[in-house]
Nucleic acid binder design. Structure first.
Lengths: 256, 256
DNA sequence: CATTGTGAACCGGTTCACAGCA
DNA sequence: TGCTGTGAACCGGTTCACAATG
């Protein structure tokens, strides 16, 4: 999931590699912070450090968007914020529905960063009738029976699934039938969707399991490294900002 | 991150590619379901479908673990569950701390799939004194002042950060100093860690932004495709199970 | 002359296609 | 005969290194 995706394998959108797309939000976040500090320009080196990537990668990424930098100087922060926002489609705002208002669904509904940039929680949907009408994050929960109507009247094309695993595929089918074409899935389930629908998944337990794998390996190495020669200091390490997590690639959180 | 990771780039652990490691939990989940239905064996084709990958990839993945299949027959479900669990380090259980008990932290604490496989919530930690002592998911919240003691007495090596972005790096530093070597970061922040510490990140807003990008592209294509010839049915699509989301690769959810 | 933009080498991972084996 | 295991081709993405340039 790493990083996997869901697109036509051949002709890529407008030449922007998927890996680059996955990093644009990271650059945007760093640039927004600079913008708030009224920094006028950044070099690829500075920005790369802030975003946690190396500068060559960043420059190559930006080269896919066009030549927005100035040699000898760097990039204009405001201009770049605008270009990336536009490229990501954040100049319009996207109504989003969240289906499954358990602990996680409620947490997401309350998530501040939602509204800030291009997204708006248009509706909260739950199958439990006793939830209907309750306010969560200032929004009244609606019943799943009305899912199709809600999608339609709000013009929703992005859905977030935070239901238990067992309900996810069914909810997904209804979302897609109602016109949703992008789904963010937090349920621990592999969703089957028609061509043209994008699915990304976020899976807590998978992330933890990947960490456990490496954790175990570290423990094993520690034992194995004792015997050889110098059992001294463990390779003095300065701070780094390595690539962090999936890109794609990868985990689902299931509400209780 | 897809997937990106945080490891020495050269000598890979025990020859198991990172991309394979990221898929093992997926296979394990599918196998566990089969096991519960008492299915004795599966072919690579069946299991691949259940896990949402293609069979060649699955076979290659398994080949890194060893030759656990039987030609002409398939794989023994129970045996494979055991081998993958062992490989992922899930035969022992990992005490985990969650730092930042807001909406999201509470949601994760309540997440059932936690305890089920190898993980145990050893402690909940929050900086807000008014939270101290409160029960969340049956566990008393402890104050961040005691972080080091908690890590130490519980032998914790995996930490989950669900604090606001501003506190994440600081919490991370303390976790690492106290001995944590694997971190799952839900805060929208790039964490800097010393060599040898693994960080994976889960970022809601990044995931949504990636979806928005593709959503926008679809809309643009629709317009562009109208002009040509046949504006008929949109390429009849049978259900697929594509790769879904990051693997690696990559978003952070920030509690309110 | 500092910094971008990019061709070319490199590398991990995926897919293909078939040999090997129960 | 059917399915696994894997070498080889392929491909997207990363890194290198330097030419281009404001």
């Amino acid at each position: 999931m790493a990083t996997g995706r869901n697109h036509r394998p051949a002709t890529r959108s407008r030449g922007i590699p998927e890996a680059t797309v996955a990093r644009l939000p990271l650059y945007l976040r760093a640039l927004t912070a600079l913008s708030e500090r009224s920094v006028p320009t950044v070099s690829s080196e500075e920005l790369a450090t802030a975003a946690g990537v190396n500068s060559a990668k960043l420059r190559k990424d930006f080269s896919y968007l066009g030549s927005y930098g100035t040699r000898g100087v760097g990039y204009d922060v405001e201009y770049l914020v605008y270009q990336i926002s536009r490229e990501l489609g954040l100049t319009q705002d996207w109504p989003v529905v969240i289906v499954g208002i358990g602990n996680l669904g409620a947490a997401l509904a309350n998530y501040g960063g939602f509204a800030s940039r291009g997204f708006r929680v248009a509706a909260l949907i739950d199958a439990d009738s006793s939830m209907t009408g309750k306010q969560v994050a200032g929004i009244a929960v609606q019943h799943v029976d009305d899912l199709e109507t809600i999608i339609d009247t709000n013009g929703v094309s992005i859905g977030v699934i935070t239901t238990p695993g067992g309900a996810a595929q069914q909810v997904c089918d209804r979302l897609v039938a109602a016109g949703v074409t992008s789904i963010l899935n937090f349920a621990p389930t592999v969703l089957t969707v028609p061509e043209g629908v994008d699915v990304r998944k976020v899976d807590l337990s998978i992330e933890l399991q990947i960490l456990a794998f490496h954790e175990q390996r570290k423990a094993a190495e520690e034992l194995a490294q004792e015997p050889p020669s110098a059992a001294g200091l463990p390779a003095a390490s300065e701070g780094r900002r390595g690539d962090q997590g999936p890109d794609g690639d990868i985990p689902a959180v299931m509400p209780a």
